[in-house]
Amino acid sequence: MFHFLLLLSRQGKTRLTKWYSSYTNKEKARFSREISNMVVSRAPKLCNFLEWKEYKIIFKRYASLYFVVCADRNDNELIILEAIHHYVEILDRYFGNVCELDLIFNFHKAYYILDELFIAGELQETSKKTVLRLIVQQDAQQENPSEGKVDL
């Protein structure tokens, strides 16, 4: 189970966060800062798995973004890396080679995709086509909001 997911820039700035376990705002800020420092300062040739507190940090860098997941110690790291890659592939298909600016200016879409994939820190949808179809449907509803309304 994921406890939280962070997207960080190479400079350590948080671009997206999703918390699946309850923490106070102070803890969230401290965790983000600690993990950001650990991940960004890590040499590229070192392992993508870190032990942190009673958790495991799994991260992967794609272009200028780090995708970081905090999971239980007994979770399989390779499955989590595959889940991260799955999310990145869907972002790539939707945005057409996703970059940091796509996530800054369209963060609501990135959150929507994340919410379609993961519920309560568990992978729920494995089909990329299904997720992309749902996102396109949501885009169509936003463009034509009157189509989804029922007259009473």
Rank of each mutant, 00 (worst) to 15 (best):
M1H: 08
L5S: 11
L6C: 12
L8E: 12
L8I: 10
R10F: 01
G12K: 02
K13H: 07
K13D: 12
T14W: 01
R15E: 06
T17K: 12
K18S: 08
W19S: 12
S22G: 04
S22M: 04
Y23H: 12
Y23R: 10
T24D: 10
T24Y: 03
E27P: 07
K28N: 03
A29L: 01
F31S: 07
F31Q: 03
E34G: 07
E34R: 12
N37L: 09
M38A: 10
V40D: 02
S41Q: 04
A43C: 02
L46G: 08
L46R: 06
L46D: 12
E51Y: 01
E51G: 02
K53D: 02
K53S: 03
E54R: 05
Y55S: 12
Y55R: 11
F59G: 15
F59C: 14
F59V: 15
K60N: 14
K60S: 13
R61W: 02
Y62T: 15
Y62N: 13
S64P: 15
S64K: 06
L65Y: 04
Y66M: 01
Y66T: 01
F67H: 01
V68A: 00
V69T: 00
C70M: 00
A71I: 04
D72M: 04
N74A: 09
N74E: 11
N76G: 09
L78E: 14
E82D: 15
E82I: 14
E82N: 15
I84L: 07
I84D: 04
Y87W: 08
E89K: 13
E89G: 14
Y94T: 04
C99L: 03
D102C: 02
D102V: 00
L103A: 11
I104D: 10
F105S: 13
F105A: 06
H108D: 12
H108E: 11
Y111N: 12
Y111P: 04
E116K: 08
I119A: 10
A120D: 05
A120G: 07
G121W: 02
E122N: 07
L123E: 06
L123W: 04
L123N: 05
L123Q: 10
Q124H: 06
Q124F: 02
E125C: 14
E125Q: 10
T126C: 13
K128C: 01
K128I: 00
K129L: 04
V131N: 05
V131Q: 06
L134Y: 03
Q138Y: 02
Q138K: 14
D139V: 01
D139Q: 08
A140D: 06
N144G: 01
P145L: 04
P145W: 01
S146Q: 08
S146H: 11
E147Y: 05
G148K: 11
G148S: 15
K149R: 12
V150Q: 13
L152H: 11
